[in-house]
């Protein structure tokens, strides 16, 4: 087991900067998700940790050892690739045993660890088959088993579930979490799917155009986004942002007065489920109502700005209907309208 320290990693592809001075520390046994939209640099960062990409500047330390200039095989890690990269010319058993064989493990150890990994991922029935005879989900399991069989100190996963269909993804996600929790491996998991990151990770690092916007636990990230980008990217539907005028530490939202940071204009951020119906308050005009089963998603306008509300499922307002809502006061985030950064004085 090992911790990972990423120290001032910068990566430029010619004139294009993929990562600018990223630093973070991943504790021993921690599950960290690197979350961000495509092109944010999350995969590049993972590949730099793996040694498949060379950083322009900075260092990577695994278990206190500087591995910055070591080839992948000397870094003591395993990886699950987005399209599995299960070797087609080897049987499932030989695929799972590959890392152990390369490490020169004796036959007894190979057999024992292959059997354990195969049992963990329920692939014992396919051990003698070739990958071409397996479904996508089964290949995925083989790829994870191959990575776990070497009992790595660090496990890297690059969007491992993105090629599975929705139902299988959900099933595999829960299973993966169980397997990795019992293994206690330090895991770095790259994904663009925020529900995957929220569900799996101990902590999430949100990346945006080559920078880490915020690192936090899923709950803290959700509740207290430090930038407008994080609030908009994490959570589905995303956070609502209303630009409001303030005067003497207060802002007037139709019939609602809220204490606000002492600035002329601020952005009020509030989650769609934190807007509650009320007798008076912020006037909201419904444009579309989508009954989702567990809740009703309302899309409309307040203060002339687009707003979404997650309402109880028995709410079925008609389009064009006007209602009043109040944000739960303890769930409000104030942001700077220019920089998009959260205003620290009002963070809980």
């Amino acid at each position: 087991m090992a911790d990972i320290v990423i120290d001032g990693i910068r990566k430029a592809f010619g004139p294009v900067v993929a990562l600018e001075s990223v630093s973070l520390r991943i504790a021993d046994g921690e599950f960290l998700a690197l979350l961000g939209p495509s092109g944010c640099g999350k995969t590049t960062l993972l590949r730099i940790i793996a040694g498949l990409e060379t950083q322009t500047e900075g260092r990577v330390l695994i278990g206190g050892r500087d591995v910055s200039d070591l080839p992948p095989r000397k870094r003591g890690l395993a990886m699950v690739f987005q399209n599995y990269a299960v070797f087609p010319h080897l049987t499932v058993r030989e695929n799972v045993a590959f890392g152990l064989r390369m490490a020169g493990a004796d036959a007894v150890r190979v057999d024992r660890q292959v059997a354990r990994a195969a049992e963990l991922l329920h692939i014992e029935p396919y051990l003698t088959r070739y990958p071409a005879q397996l479904s996508g989900g089964q290949r995925q399991r083989v790829a994870v088993a191959r990575a776990l069989a070497v009992e790595p100190a660090v496990l890297l996963m690059d969007e491992p579930l993105s090629n599975l269909d929705a139902l299988l993804r959900l099933e595999m996600r829960a299973e993966l979490k169980g397997v990795l929790q019992s293994a206690g491996t330090t895991t770095v998991y790259v994904t663009h799917d925020q529900t995957e990151a929220m569900g799996l990770a101990d902590r999430i690092a949100v990346l945006h155009s080559g920078r880490i916007e915020q690192i936090d636990t899923p709950a803290a990230l959700y509740r207290h986004p430090r930038t407008r980008f994080v609030g908009g990217f994490v959570g589905s539907p995303p956070m609502n942002f209303l630009t409001v005028q303030t005067a003497s530490g207060q802002t007037m939202l139709d019939g609602l007065t809220l204490a606000a940071p002492g600035r002329e204009r601020v952005v009020l951020g509030v989650r769609p489920e934190d807007l509650e119906p009320a007798e008076s308050g912020l006037a909201f005009t419904v444009r579309v109502a989508e009954p989702m089963g567990s809740h009703t998603l309302l899309t409309g306008e307040a203060l002339g700005q687009p707003v979404r509300i997650v309402a109880p499922s028995d709410w079925r307002p008609a389009p064009g209907e006007r209602m009043f809502v109040r944000p739960r006061p303890d769930r409000i985030v104030w942001l700077d309208p220019e920089t998009g950064a959260a205003l620290e004085e009002h963070l809980a």
Binding site: A50, G51, L52, P71, P72, R73, L77, A78, M79, F81, A85, F87, F98, G99, M102, A103, R146, V150
Partner: peptide, 9 residues
């Protein structure tokens, strides 16, 4: 790349 990660030069 998988081969490199799993111990190959």
């Amino acid at each position: 790349e998988a081969a490199w990660v799993f111990g190959c030069s």
